[in-house]
């Protein structure tokens, strides 16, 4: 599904290149649950952003479902991730002026999904996440865990084939974090959604099927987790 070849990312400052990522090559298959780990500043988030097409690599080749992303125009790229990628952020990034239901509806609007189907999909997701009662609340009326649930609901409602999560539990207490990770695991196993998450937590990484460890911009380790 995803194929990275020799991805490099650096910033040139006064002729000195400071590398964020070097020679990153890997392949991620449909249905995998990958955790990217590594110390602060190792380039985990940058790698995730490149996977999510929010940033462009300085060099290298990125194939997403058989398409060469680096060669795509902006519009085509937006089209691609609009249809296939869902994002989950550490700070949730819900839109404060929108209610829970409206936040979840937003990606569907951009996909030009008709109103009746939007309604049923939102109802579906709300129901699944046990949040029907909260649909008219604004984000600041929810707890952190609940906000992150909305964030995941928003990512799921567009029926992506892959979810990219940047430290999804970084701002949460451990009980809530566990709940979120269970949810990810369930989505991965039952719905077959590919999940790539960046995490600091060894424990969270264990929920996945594979762990990529990055240090100083280079993939140090690539191990698979074979059950517990």
């Amino acid at each position: 599904m995803i194929k990275l070849q020799n991805i490099e990312k650096y910033y040139a400052n006064k002729g000195v290149k400071s590398y964020i990522l070097r020679h990153v090559s890997t392949e991620i298959k449909q249905g995998e649950f990958v955790s990217i780990m590594g110390p602060s500043g190792a380039g985990k988030s940058t790698l995730l952003n490149i996977l999510g097409m929010l940033e462009e690599p300085t060099y290298g080749e990125y194939n997403f479902m058989g398409e060469d992303v680096t060669a795509l125009k902006e519009r085509q790229r937006i089209e691609l991730y609009r249809n296939h990628i869902g994002f989950v952020f550490q700070a949730y990034h819900l839109i404060d002026e929108m209610t829970v239901a409206e936040n979840i509806e937003a990606p569907l609007l951009y996909k030009k999904i008709p109103g009746s189907e939007r309604k049923s999909r939102i109802a579906d997701v709300l129901d699944r996440f046990n949040m029907v009662a909260k649909k008219d609340l604004f984000p600041n009326q929810l707890s952190g865990g609940q906000q992150q649930l909305v964030g995941i609901a928003r990512a799921l409602v567009a029926q992506p084939s892959i979810i990219l999560a940047d430290e999804p539990t970084g701002n949460l207490q451990s009980a809530q974090a566990e709940q979120i990770m269970e949810l990810f695991k369930k989505l991965n196993e039952e719905d077959g959604i590919t999940i790539i998450q960046v995490t600091h937590s060894e424990k969270n990484a264990q929920y996945g099927s594979r762990i990529l460890t990055i240090e100083d911009g280079v993939i140090k380790e690539d191990i698979s987790v074979n059950g517990l």
Binding site: R75, I78, Y81, I95, D96
Partner: peptide, 16 residues
């Protein structure tokens, strides 16, 4: 700014 950022990530075009 955040609203714009999120919307962009959710797939909004600049024109929209």
């Amino acid at each position: 700014a955040k609203e714009v950022g999120v919307k962009k990530v959710l797939g909004a075009y600049k024109k929209q």
